[in-house]
Simulated scan of single mutants.
Amino acid sequence: MIALRSALFALLFYPGTLLYVLATILVSPLGTAPVRKVVHGWSAFHWWLVRHVVGLDVRWEGEIPRGPYLIAVKHHSMMEAVDTLRFGHTPVVVMKRELTSMPLFGWVTRRYGAIGVDREAGAAALREMMKEARAAAASGRPVIIFPEGTRVPFGAEPPLQPGFAGLYRALALPVIPVAHDVGRLWGKGFLKRSGRVRFRVGDPIPPGLKRDDVEARVHAAINALGPVVD
């Protein structure tokens, strides 16, 4: 059953994604609002598959506030990466450059407002990320970052990547940390197991803290749902 659900998800999600990408390209000349509507429709489509095909029962503890925040999310899987578009209130998502450079899909991510970061490019890439993030925050949109830099297995608690501290300092925004345990059931591999997963919104972390302090607080908050679960 696990393999069947996983295969059905792939058979529906990836062709469906292509249709949404093409629809975004078609409506792009009409302006930003239609683009966002189609992209959010894609995220809603993914959310429907997550619940009804994969069989995840997602429970939230707390709510993501609206407005310009820096939202730091634990990263286990594609599930929460796509779902940020649904729970983040039209966010700008910081993602690896490989995704924003993909044919067609990458164009859509940039048109929506995602920020691609080349983790190997050093200081120049970080400066460009901060420039784009400042513009996003100035427009009232939240900025979502996966501060560990990549997907990690459930239970892993690596240190935060340097880009988080730089972005925190540059934006001077409160941080909303988000922990979850999706990786128990859905990680990097093909198989996606059904069951209950939890998301927990931590207390806002104020701007202006020293690097060690903010990194320690964010690290603890996004790892609040570790291997021991109810």
Rank of each mutant, 00 (worst) to 15 (best):
E98S: 11
E98N: 05
T100E: 13
T100S: 14
S101P: 03
M102Y: 11
P103Y: 14
L104V: 15
L104C: 15
L104K: 15
L104P: 13
F105H: 15
F105M: 15
G106W: 00
W107S: 11
W107H: 02
V108Q: 09
R110D: 14
R111E: 03
R111D: 01
Y112Q: 06
Y112K: 07
Y112E: 07
Y112D: 10
G113I: 04
G116H: 03
G116D: 05
G116K: 06
G116T: 03
R119Q: 03
E120G: 13
E120N: 08
E120K: 12
A121N: 07
G122D: 14
G122T: 12
R127E: 14
E128C: 09
M130S: 15
M130Y: 14
M130K: 15
M130R: 14
E132W: 10
A133F: 07
R134M: 10
A136D: 05
A136C: 09
A137G: 05
A137M: 08
A138E: 06
A138D: 06
A138R: 08
A138V: 00
S139G: 02
S139I: 01
R141T: 01
V143I: 04
I144T: 08
I145A: 15
I145Q: 11
F146Q: 11
F146K: 02
P147G: 05
G149Q: 02
G149M: 02
G149R: 06
G149D: 10
G149K: 06
T150G: 08
T150F: 02
T150E: 12
R151S: 04
V152I: 12
F154S: 12
G155N: 11
A156R: 12
A156P: 01
A156K: 09
P158V: 04
P158H: 05
P158F: 05
P159W: 00
L160R: 06
L160V: 10
P162K: 02
G163R: 00
F164R: 07
A165M: 02
G166F: 03
Y168V: 07
Y168D: 08
Y168H: 07
R169G: 02
A170R: 00
A170Q: 00
A170C: 05
L171A: 00
A172F: 08
A172K: 08
A172M: 03
